[in-house]
């Protein structure tokens, strides 16, 4: 399948939509922390013990890896398709910023992901004995203004990535229809704002609470 250009875009679209479901659940759990430690720790415990979630985390890791490798491969191939660049080009006249900078916002999110795994995933999964400490960890990390700044920048990046990615995934899978596509585009726009503002505001909430 990945040997054809259409196969590759289908793989990008499917893994992208899968990662979108992940980010939605992640935002939901994060929002529990606005209510209080009990609810957030309970959510964390559910995610850390539920057998379905525990199985899906390996699928999720695979989804990330495929999406990232394919994205890098596509960028290399696409660059090679135009060995001599235009001396004068005006791409803003015909396409959105978000659609042209997918690899940049993608790499930004990847770099953040590495930092994020180190600061949250590793301690929660391998170091904490019970799930009672997860809320304290979150509060501690978000009391660092530099971390919160990096966090917000990363989510602006993800938001821009989703601005194109959400509706693009539908087009790649051939799900373009005059009745539904306008709705999908609006939903994508709402979703990218919800993710960007949602994650950032939770981090900022805990930072200002810690002052």
């Amino acid at each position: 399948m990945s040997y054809s250009s259409i196969g590759r875009k289908v793989v990008m679209g499917l893994t992208g939509l899968f990662l979108i479901t992940f980010i939605t659940i992640h935002l939901l759990i994060n929002s529990f922390s606005l209510v209080g430690p009990e609810l957030f720790n309970a959510g964390s415990k559910f995610m850390g013990t539920n057998p379905v979630i525990q199985t899906m985390q390996y699928v999720l890791a695979l989804g990330f890896i495929i999406h990232i490798i394919m994205g890098i491969r596509l960028t290399i191939q696409n660059n090679a398709a135009r060995p001599i660049k235009y001396v004068h080009n005006d791409p803003s006249a015909n396409s959105t910023f978000s659609s042209r900078y997918m690899i940049f916002t993608g790499v930004l999110v990847l770099l953040f992901l590495i930092l994020h795994l180190k600061d949250f995933f590793v301690p929660i999964k391998f170091e904490h004995g019970t799930f009672g400490e997860d809320y304290d960890l979150l509060v501690r990390v978000f009391s660092n203004p530099l971390y919160v700044f990096i966090y917000v920048v990363a989510f602006v990046g993800l938001s821009i990535h989703l601005h194109h990615g959400f509706q693009s995934a539908f087009q790649s899978l051939g799900w373009n229809h005059p009745k539904y596509t306008p709705f999908v585009k609006k939903l994508g726009l709402v979703f990218c704002y919800v993710v960007g503002i949602g994650f950032s505001s939770i981090a900022l909430f805990h930072y200002f609470n810690s002052l």
Binding site: S5, R8, K9, L74, Q77, N78, A80, A81, R82, P91, N94, S95, T96, S99, R100, M102, H164, Q167, S168, Q171, S172
Partner: peptide
Amino acid sequence: GNCTNTGA
């Protein structure tokens, strides 16, 4: 190259 749905 591969289409990335920029719409240009």
